[in-house]
Design a protein around this nucleic acid. Structure first.
Length: 435
RNA sequence: UCCUUGGUAGCUCAGUUGGCAGAGCAGCGGACUGUUAAUCCGCGGGUCGCAGGUUCGAGUCCUGCCCAAGGAGCCA
């Protein structure tokens, strides 16, 4: 029987004798005294082993064991100002479950390649543990947001018959006698079908992109949440995106304020400013703003807004900015075009502040059968693959809209992390399939 | 796929004009009863990414390849 007490609960047990199990995070020792930093996933506490207070074998164990050895410690909880937690354990006994040697990760500087090679161990460090916890809270906040507002979770398949958008490169897998299947790059089209069934739907799952993207904002496998709502236009979609982001950032901040400000040393004020209303600009206004801010490198209407341009725009505001009405040529076939200007698509992107880039993209979908069919032909997509999708426009079509939010980019923004590889337990990237 | 910068001890890096392979940290042994990246003494540790080439001699110069980091394109 192992103790159920965790380090996080220690402040409620002052003066009592407790037993804790965990891992040796670090150790300093002198001749008759050893300071063990014990880690159990809920926190870290200093355990003081005095030679006079423990059996000789326990003291020898304390002197001998290396970092990340698994141990069970018994001792008295006492308040101590010198401890970071405010408490420490005066150890009366200690046993090692397994004695570790030569733990590769030191409390020193390491390069990203080394850390990613040791991701299975790196995730034990307090900083990484905090990021994983924040990711978990963000995902719960996302689910709670939709679950409490009448949305129904409608999981989309991961194995799909064809490209959803026909653009990105897809991962191929053999599929019995049916030939090839592909890993999904978006659940959106299925989300649209679900919205026609349940009204408000959301898809939440992993997504795969086989593009050879090698940047700090890209993973080949990432998680995306994609709400889709029947009877919603672009304006409603933007309101939803704004309300959603305010809510989920607020929830994470509420629970993890100390870790974000302390361990992650992130500017909390920047997150506190994430309040309604967000600035809203059209793509056209965005291009004008970039031209003014950076006259030396011309940009013209119709150009893509790349990473540098996103940062220029984001830096002009103190909170996320909604950019909408993009050139229709830039967007996928399913976007509804502006009824007053066919060159514009009713899409919206959200750029996170401080150069963290695009975290959300969405818009109003084309709901007219003939228009959508013509669009599929114009994009040279196989009609037969979209038969079921076209059906949605044949049987009770309604205006509808939705968006996709990238979980990893959102975590990177909230945590102030430079690279998305730290925001997922085990990152999959172009050059990395292990651990 | 393209561009840039890298690859030297377990880790982070230095290595001059081509002339004996180095430091800090980690590890191991020892000392120390209040340490916070403890301190002090001692010790071990190398396929200089790989394969060729030039040279009396290559970590250093040349060619090819592999790998990594950052960026571009594409995207969330």
């Amino acid at each position: 029987m192992f103790p159920t007490l965790t380090i996080a609960d220690i402040p409620h047990h002052e003066g009592k004798s407790v037993t804790l199990s965990g891992w040796l995070y670090s150790k300093r020792s002198s001749g008759k005294l050893a300071f063990l930093q014990l880690r159990d996933g809920s926190g870290v506490i200093q355990c003081v082993v005095s030679k006079a207070d423990v059996p000789p074998a326990a003291f020898e164990t304390a002197q001998r064991i290396g970092d990340e050895s698994s141990v069970t410690v018994t001792g008295t909880v006492r308040a101590d100002k010198r401890s970071a937690l405010g408490f420490e354990i005066g150890v009366t006994d200690l046993t090692a479950l397994q004695e570790a040697r030569d733990y590769p990760i030191a409390a020193k500087e390491h390069g990203p390649a080394f850390l990613m090679d040791h991701r299975h161990l790196w995730m034990r460090t307090p900083r990484q543990r905090a990021v994983l916890g924040i990711r978990a809270t963000l995902i719960k906040s996302i689910r709670d947001y939709f679950d409490s507002r009448g949305f129904t979770l409608t999981d989309a398949p991961i194995l799909t018959p064809a490209a959803c958008e026909g653009t990105s490169t897809l991962f191929e897998v053999p599929y019995f006698d049916l030939g090839k299947a592909f890993l999904t790059q978006s659940g959106q089209l299925y989300g649209e079908a679900a919205a026609m069934a349940v009204g408000k739907a959301y898809v939440f799952g992993p997504t795969f992109r086989a593009e050879k993207s090698k940047t700090r904002r890209h993973l080949t496998e990432f998680w995306m949440v994609e709400p889709e709502v029947a009877f919603m236009d672009l304006a409603g979609d933007m309101d939803l995106a704004e309300d959603f982001i305010v809510e989920i950032v607020g929830r994470v901040l509420e629970k993890h304020r100390k870790e974000i400000a302390g361990l992650l040393e992130r500017d909390i004020a920047a997150l506190e400013r994430v309040q309604k209303p967000f600035p809203r600009i059209t793509y056209t206004e965005g291009i004008e703003r970039i031209q003014q801010a950076r006259p030396e490198t011309p940009i013209t209407w119709g150009d893509d807004i790349g990473g540098d341009e996103e940062t220029i725009l984001a830096n002009q505001f103190d909170r996320p900015v909604l950019m909408h009405h993009f050139p229709s040529a830039m967007k996928a076939f399913y976007f509804k075009h502006d009824p007053t200007d066919d060159n514009l698509a009713l899409g919206v992107d959200v750029l996170a502040p401080e150069g963290f880039g695009e975290i959300l993209g969405g818009g109003q979908r084309e709901d007219d059968y003939d228009t959508l069919l013509a669009r599929i032909d114009a994009h040279k997509l196989p009609r037969e693959a979209f038969g079921w999708y076209l059906d949605l426009r044949k049987y009770g079509s309604v205006p509808h809209a939705g968006f996709g939010l990238g979980v990893e980019r959102t975590v990177a923004w909230i945590c102030g992390l430079h690279h998305v590889r730290e925001t997922i337990p085990f990152a999959r990237m172009m050059e990395r399939l292990t651990p």
